[in-house]
Nucleic acid binder design. Structure first.
Length: 430
RNA sequence: GCCGCCUUAGCUCAGCCCGGUUAGAGCACUCGGCUGUUAACCGAGGGGUCGCCGGUUCAAAUCCGGCAGGCGGCGCCA
């Protein structure tokens, strides 16, 4: 059986009427009406209607199938291709042989299920074309990112998941018992990538990061995939340009290669105009104040403000030079305004922040000073400080949230739609 | 961590404000019918500790309090 020639559903739509075919897949829907039964057969390429006539088949087999086969039963069918305007897509298969591989119990996923029920059943969710479309786009995003980095001389590095110290002072870490010692799950691979630039100059990674924040929002996961890059001999400007080229490349590739999936999601998105916008933090808060949103200097951009900015922009936009008060200790101070840092967030239209990046402090003493100013202990960062002791160079990097990027590109309303098995403060199952 | 809302059949919900026979609907399920359906349709049937604990009352799904689980938003961030 497994060595026989099987057609895929998508191939059948290109075959001539009368062609004999054999397919295997699952019952997406079945409609029994006496001696005539319609099965919507689904495989990984699509869905096609299969027509079973009692008069065409062994009567006993027909009775058994129409009594026991329900949605998601797996089966092999043989028949001939038939053009018929009454069939979805204009083609169906007139069936003359059926072999059930495995009957299905009553399939629990139906229209109208609540969000939490659907999440409980996530392991059965891969059968839905809409979910497949999102994951295919996600796959293209990852492929495109890796392609762009390789084409531009970046070396892929894999960093540890178990770590001992926080990258961001503030963000909360998941603690794990590491043979009696305290360890944590990584929240960013940045420090490890900074170590790697001294050998490879340009490096990147694509791996999960973990945040123990109890964030109840549609843009947070406790476990998310992080695309991070770090470059030696690079300025803030340099890293912004990398982000722009990378994001443009990824979005363009999805638009070129995932038309069908974007259609299924009813999403229309154009290749973003270049160059991306560049707005200073100071201009951004001025603009927000004019719109009646009160942000004073030194405050971070609130969610309300982020949404407002995201609505205004007609293409991705860098919000540049955030104040020190809103940033982690390692960000390079602005040479012309010591209150600010050489760092930027990348905002995308109607969505908001998807990356944070900037130039890192490469001077040992300045870095120690900034660690102390943040009430952290320099001895917790010994190996990180070492990187500034042995031929330090100016460098810059960024982190991009894969799910946030996929959320923007697909236009889905919640981040948990963009990952197969989402992890949130209230969900670690299935 | 903070604020708001929800929890009644396998699922999605109505009933609750204004307490009172046997708690309803649609879908799903079971049985019967149907040779052109497309979330097929038509007929019949089975299915409920009204989230949990306590209080008020002659009487609680319904009013009050606590707890648990979930959803939405804020804060935090990618």
């Amino acid at each position: 059986m497994l060595n026989d020639k099987f057609y895929k559903v998508s191939e059948v739509f290109n075959l001539e009427e009368g062609k004999a075919v054999k397919l295997r897949g699952w019952i997406n829907n079945i409609r029994v009406q006496g001696g005539l039964t319609f099965i919507d057969l689904r495989d990984s390429t699509g869905i096609i209607q299969v027509t079973l006539k009692k008069s065409n088949l062994n009567e006993k087999l027909y009775e058994e199938i129409t009594n026991k086969a329900r949605r998601e039963s797996s089966l092999i069918i043989e028949g001939t291709v038939k053009n018929d305007p009454r069939a979805p897509g204009g083609k169906e298969i007139l069936c003359n042989k059926v072999e059930i591989i495995s009957y299905s119990e009553v399939y629990p996923i139906r229209k109208g299920l609540s969000i939490s029920k659907l999440l409980d059943l996530r392991h059965l969710y891969f059968r839905r074309p809409r979910f497949q479309a999102i994951l295919k786009i996600r796959n293209t995003v990852i492929d495109a990112a890796r392609e762009w980095f390789k084409q531009n001389g970046f070396f892929e590095i894999h960093c540890p998941t178990f770590i001992t110290a926080a990258v961001e002072g503030g963000a909360t870490l998941f603690e794990v018992d590491y043979f009696g010692k305290k360890a944590y799950l990584t929240q960013s691979s940045q420090f490890y990538l900074e170590a790697a630039i001294f050998g490879f100059e340009k490096v990147f990674t694509i791996q999960p990061s973990f945040r123990a924040e109890k964030s109840r929002t549609r843009k947070h996961l406790t476990e998310f995939w992080h695309i991070e890059a770090e470059m030696a001999f690079a300025s803030h400007e340099d890293i912004i340009n990398v982000e722009e080229e990378l994001v443009y490349y990824i979005v363009s590739k999805v638009i070129d290669e995932r038309k069908r999936e974007l259609e299924i999601l009813n999403r229309s998105i154009d290749k973003p105009k270049r160059p991306f916008l560049r707005i200073s933090y100071l201009d951004a808060i001025k603009l927000l104040n004019e719109k009646g949103i009160p942000i004073t200097f030194g405050e971070d951009i609130t969610t309300e403000a982020e949404k407002t900015l995201a609505k205004i922009i007609d293409r991705p936009a860098f919000i540049m030079y955030f104040p020190k008060t809103t940033r982690a200790f390692y960000h390079m101070p602005h040479p012309e305004d010591n209150r600010l840092t050489l760092s930027s967030d990348l905002y995308v239209p109607n969505e908001g922040e998807i990356t944070t990046g900037g130039q890192r402090i490469h001077d040992l003493n300045l870095l120690i000073e900034r660690i102390k100013e943040n009430n952290l202990n320099p001895s917790d960062y010994e190996w990180y400080l070492d990187l500034r002791r042995y031929g330090s160079v100016p460098h810059a990097g960024f982190g991009l949230g894969v799910e946030r990027l996929v959320k923007w590109i697909t236009g889905v309303s919640h981040i948990r739609e963009t990952i197969p098995f989402p992890r949130t403060p209230v969900r670690v199952y299935p």
